[in-house]
Amino acid sequence: MKRISAILLVAAMILALSSCGLFRRDKQAVPDASEEIEKEETGSDAESVGKEEIGPDEEQPSKSKSDSIYTISNKIIVDNEYVTLAVTEAYTEKNGDFKLKMLCKNKTDDPISAYCENASINGYMIYADWYSEARVNSSDESEMVFYAADLKKAGITLVEDVELFIFAYSYGDEGEKSCIFDYYSIYPTGLHAGSVTYPDKTRPKQGVLVVNTGDFKFCIERINEKGELGYTLQVYIENNLPGTDIYVIWEDESVNGFKMDSYWGQVVLAGKRAVCDAPFLHNDFDKNGIKKVDEIEFKLKAVNFDDWDDVIYEGAFIYNP
C-alpha cells in the first residue's frame, strides 16, 4: 500500500523556462561554480553543494518514430491460470506520445481489472497512463500511454526498454483475488535484457547540483514561474543504490520565509533516474502576497521505499533562484 500511496503524490506538469541559482547548505556560503564542477568530475568532495554552470539547454525535441522502428507484435508478457496479457503493438503518435497496445484475456468467471505503476523507460521513471477491465471470459483491448512531455524532459526519443509493475485482480462474490503482481520488462525495438544500455542523459546546461553522494544525486534543472499548478522546479534524481528503491521528498518548505507545501514526492527504483516537477501552488503564493521568489528553504529527504524509517539521505538547504 505504501507504493500505491506514494505514487499518487507525484505531480506531472509541462514547463519551459530555464533558471540558474545559488545554494546554501545549513545557511553557509556556496563555493564558486568552477570549483564545484571540478569536484564532481574528479569525484572529490561528493557531498558538497554549489552552483553548477553548464550553459544553455540544447536538448532537441522528441520526434515521431515510424511504426517500423518498433518491431514488437503480439508479445505475451503474462500467461497464467487467470489471465493472458500481451503487447500487440508499439508506436509513437504525431504529438510525441508513446503507446503500447495491450490485450488482456480474462480466463476466470469474475471481471478482472489491471493497471500499472512505477513504470520506467530507458532507465527513467516515466508515468504510464493505463487501465484495463476485462469482463468474464472475454478480452479487453486498451492503450498504455507515456506522454510526450515526460519523455522530452528525460531526453527520450526512442523507447527501447519499458519496465512496469503490473497489478491485476478479479473481483466477485468471494472478494478480490490477485491475478498479477510483479515487475515485467518489454523491449519494443526487439532488444533483450543483455543488450539494453542506459546512456548518460544530456543534462541542461544551466542547473544547480544540490547533492551527489555517489549513491544519490539530486539537482534542480529549471524553474517555470508560471507552471500549470504554480511556481515549479524541475528536478533530476539518480538512485545508484543496488537493490534499494527510494522515495524522495522535501519537508519544512518555505518561500520567502512563508511556510507552505509543495505536494511533491518521487519514487526512484534501484538503478533508475527521474526528471519530475515540484510545484508550489498559485493559491499559496497569492495568500502570502508573493510576487517574486527570493529564497526557498527546504529539507531534502530520501528514504528506503520499503522501510520509511530507513533514511538514505537528509539535509537542509536554502535555494536562491
Rank of each mutant, 00 (worst) to 15 (best):
A114G: 09
F280I: 15
S132M: 10
D129S: 14
K27Q: 13
A270I: 04
P56T: 15
L229I: 14
W264L: 05
T197Y: 05
T71P: 02
Y184P: 01
S170M: 01
M13Y: 12
G265W: 03
S73G: 04
Y187C: 00
Y319A: 00
V145L: 03
E163L: 01
S254M: 08
N239L: 03
W264N: 11
E221H: 11
I4C: 02
V248F: 06
N212I: 00
K101T: 15
F218K: 03
E40A: 14
N137Y: 03
R135V: 13
Y124Q: 01
L229R: 12
G43A: 00
D310C: 04
I237K: 00
Y169A: 11
V162T: 00
A270S: 14
K291F: 00
P111K: 04
E141D: 13
F165I: 12
R273G: 06
S120M: 02
N224C: 10
F165E: 05
A114M: 12
K205Q: 12
W250A: 08
V145A: 00
A270G: 11
Y124C: 01
K2N: 03
D182S: 12
P56K: 14
N212G: 02
T189D: 05
E81V: 04
S178C: 08
D310L: 02
C179R: 06
A119L: 03
C276S: 12
S170A: 08
K94D: 13
A316V: 15
N240Q: 07
D310V: 03
A148R: 13
S48Q: 06
V208L: 11
D252Q: 14
S139W: 03
E81W: 01
V293G: 07
L100H: 01
E221Y: 11
V83R: 04
Y70D: 04
G194F: 10
L241I: 15
N224Y: 05
I290L: 09
V196G: 07
D79F: 00
L281W: 13
P279R: 05
S68N: 14
F23V: 14
S142T: 15
L158N: 02
V162K: 01
E163G: 01
